[in-house]
């Protein structure tokens, strides 16, 4: 998994430089943001001439998923502020999924820290390599690296597409984004795609309205609070 992330890091560094961005940007972002999807989104929007504020908004929206992640794995990395701060910074899809897959608390903790530090090192090393390589290669399109990013996203998304409601929402969002790309400034189509979330609604209501539920307790169809949500996690 670290090797795969390093390759994605290489592609991020190479693509950023290939898009004409300054080499320090992908390196700095990978250290301080450390969230692949948001970084790709940001770089893609800025390079396409999008407003940096719109790119930040889109990146933050993508990273908002770390909020529920934190509630799910918040007890894994121990107490005390140094651990909390370091552990929080290492929180990415892979570490959360990997930690939650371990049955016992002790193994969870080891898995989280091992996976987190490994991924951080691999990702940042990959990005530096990619930046250096991208400057050497010049034409990064000839390596097909622009296809690597969407493919990575598909691999990350597939496990989350199990329910019909989510698939419907994703499809609607894709159509909205594609239809509006022709005439809206870069970045906005992806944000507008959020309208697709509405397409996930009916199924949720169906579940809440099951006849065996007494009226007024629609929310009982939801999982118990504190249940770790692994639905979003890749692999």
């Amino acid at each position: 998994m670290c090797a795969a992330d390093a390759v994605v890091g290489v592609s991020f560094g190479t693509i950023s430089v290939g898009l004409g961005l300054p080499p320090w940007l992908p390196v700095l972002m990978s250290l301080v943001v450390f969230a692949g999807a948001a970084q790709f989104l940001f770089v893609g929007l800025v390079a396409a001439g999008g407003n940096p504020a719109a790119a930040v908004a889109a990146g933050l929206l993508v990273n908002a998923r770390h909020l529920p992640f934190g509630f799910a794995v918040g007890d894994v990395f121990g107490t005390g502020w140094p651990r909390r701060i370091a552990g929080s910074h290492l929180m990415v899809d892979e570490t959360v999924a990997f930690a939650l897959a371990q049955p016992e608390p002790a193994r969870r903790r080891t898995a989280y820290w091992l996976c987190g530090t490994g991924l951080f090192a691999a990702w940042n090393a990959g990005v530096v390599l990619g930046v250096l390589g991208g400057r050497a290669v010049g034409d990064t399109d000839s390596l097909g690296l622009d296809a690597a990013f969407p493919a990575v996203l598909v691999a990350l998304l597939l496990p989350s597409l199990r329910t019909a409601a989510t698939r419907r929402a994703a499809l609607t969002g894709m159509l909205v984004a594609l239809a509006t790309t022709a005439f809206l400034p870069a970045g906005l189509p992806v944000l507008l795609a959020l309208a697709g979330v509405a397409a996930a609604r009916p199924a949720r209501r169906d579940r809440a309205d099951r006849p065996d539920r007494p009226a007024g307790t629609g929310s009982t169809a939801a999982p118990a609070p504190g249940t770790p949500t692994t639905e979003k996690s890749p692999r």
């Binding site: 989104l41 993508v62 969407p150 996203l153 989510t166 894709m174 984004a177 992806v190 949500t229």
Partner: peptide, 15 residues
């Protein structure tokens, strides 16, 4: 969760 999936799916489509 659904919002994140939708955002990333839209990003797949456009990118």
């Amino acid at each position: 969760n659904v919002a994140v999936v939708v955002l990333l799916a839209a990003l797949v489509a456009t990118s």
